[in-house]
Amino acid sequence: MTGGTQLTFHCPTCGESMAVNAPMREALLNHGCVVCGTPVPQSAFSAPEPNGDTEC
């Protein structure tokens, strides 16, 4: 993934979690969760945990 990791995405519907950059965030908001297909709310994005551990 290019564009730099800036946020953690956590789908409230399917539970999928992954690190995302700005283009990915925009795409997920516009097209829904890539894994389960349900709409994604703004609240699905958060700053990465301090230890930086994220599951892709």
Binding site: A27, H31, V34, C36
Partner: peptide
């Protein structure tokens, strides 16, 4: 692999009907 997903993938999958969970 989900680790290789890009914004283009998200856009493409956005055209697919969601699975009938």
């Amino acid at each position: 692999p989900k680790s290789e997903l890009t914004a283009d993938h998200v856009k493409r999958y956005g055209t697919a009907k969601r699975p009938l969970f």
